[in-house]
Design a protein around this nucleic acid. Structure first.
Length: 396
RNA sequence: UCUCUUGUCGGUC
């Protein structure tokens, strides 16, 4: 199994959880008994993708092995259930564990926090054995509160109360300030830090960029010691949000020529939206080719990005072809097409797709009504508006 | 060789 594990690990480590899981299955089918390392890697892959069914199968399989009671593996199970939102199952595994370590508790706390059950998280945090409550537990708690709208006070309180603070604690703090527009407080903390990592820099870049300080953001971006793909994405997104699409694309090109950084899904989505806003199909096609060449999956956001790019550039045939070819149409991809048609005055096609949509939130309604308004079809616009109100569409 | 906490991203306005 060592060789197999090495392969599984390399996939898992390089963010290919699907292949990792596939290799694991192949291994088992070939009669090679996995060891606890193979299982933990497989479970981790399930966690990453939120595959509960596969995870449950592995869970079942695990009972037949003597190492099935291993703390590491049980922790992996807790993680898998928590990340898939199955709090009850996670709780079951956790409650039945004979030995728990701090990771077990921290996983439960984090899971509860991310499901919006901060009450359960608090209970676990307060009741866990003191010797297991470590920095990660504290950081998980302040991270949880920092995501709550009115959590700032509690974050400050916990931050004062915690016995130690590390880089993560400080990063959580500055992010918490940034997300509330308190850039001055964030900056003071950032400047005071004796150690900063690429995340600290990234939080500040994102903050300045979103609050209109793109130039300051750029300064920090240039000063970042070891930029990674997320810093670049934050910078690019910042440029796009401020309408500086050319600059965004320049960062993208710099990234491509800088061999140590390769674009990811997010990079490409941002680049596509920059191209869409500029209406430069040719550059969009180049990115499309890159996506095909590197075999990025176009099932999710990238697919939408491509459709949107072609639609906004006026190539509705290309957009429609992609839309038709896409396996699963989501409300978002559907809306993107409606918007594209409406924007270029093809209200018939827009309306046809709009009517075919199985589900609509406020966005397609707004877009369709907006299309009618733009074309001065006030009668249709008003009719739709009334219909929308009658349907009680939530604005969200 | 394995498990926990922090930054970036999609459709209308």
């Amino acid at each position: 199994p060592f060789l197999w594990n090495a392969i599984i690990k390399s996939f898992s480590h390089n963010d290919y959880p699907k292949q990792a899981l596939l290799v694991f299955c192949t291994m088992m089918e070939n009669g090679v008994c996995g060891d606890k390392y193979s299982f933990s890697l497989a479970l981790k892959s399930c966690s990453k993708m939120g595959f509960v069914k596969q995870g449950m199968q592995i869970h079942g399989l695990l009972r037949k092995f003597e190492f099935g009671g291993d703390v590491f593996l049980l922790n992996c199970l807790v993680c898998m259930y928590m990340r898939s939102g199955c709090v009850e199952f996670a709780r079951q595994v956790f409650d039945r564990m004979i030995y728990r370590d701090s990771v077990s508790y921290n996983l439960m706390i984090d899971g509860c926090v991310k499901c919006g059950r901060i009450d359960l998280a608090c209970e676990l945090f307060d009741c866990m054995p003191l010797e297991m409550r470590n920095l990660v537990s504290w950081n998980t708690m302040i991270g949880g509160y920092s995501k709550l709208e009115d959590g700032f006070e509690v974050v400050m309180e916990l931050f004062e109360k915690m016995p130690d603070r590390d880089l993560v604690s400080l990063n959580v703090m500055i992010d918490c300030c940034v997300k509330r527009g308190k850039m001055d407080v964030a900056r003071a903390l950032f400047d005071k830090m004796t150690k900063r990592d690429v995340i600290s820099w990234g939080i500040m870049i994102d903050g300045y960029a979103k609050l209109g300080g793109v130039c300051v953001a750029r300064g920090l971006f240039d000063a970042t010691p070891c930029r990674d793909v997320v810093s670049c994405n934050a910078m690019m997104a910042g440029y796009v949000q401020n309408g500086c699409c050319t600059e965004a694309l320049q960062v993208f090109r710099d990234m491509l020529s800088h061999s140590s950084l390769s674009p990811d899904n997010t990079t490409l989505s941002i680049a596509l939206s920059a191209v869409a806003q500029l209406g430069r199909v040719n550059e969009g096609v180049v990115i499309h080719c890159y996506i095909k060449e590197k075999r990025f999956s176009v099932g999710g956001k990238l697919g939408v990005g491509l459709i949107d790019m072609y639609a906004k550039c006026g190539d509705l045939e290309a957009a429609k072809a992609l839309f038709d070819k896409m396996g699963k149409r989501t409300m978002v991809s559907w809306t993107t097409m409606v918007v594209g048609y409406a924007k270029f005055g093809d209200l018939d096609n827009a309306r046809r797709l709009f009517n075919e949509m199985p589900e609509k939130d406020a966005v397609p309604w707004n877009a369709m009504i907006g299309g009618y308004v733009q074309a001065k079809c006030s009668k249709e616009a008003l009719a739709l508006f009334n219909e929308m109100q009658a349907m009680n569409v939530k604005p969200d």
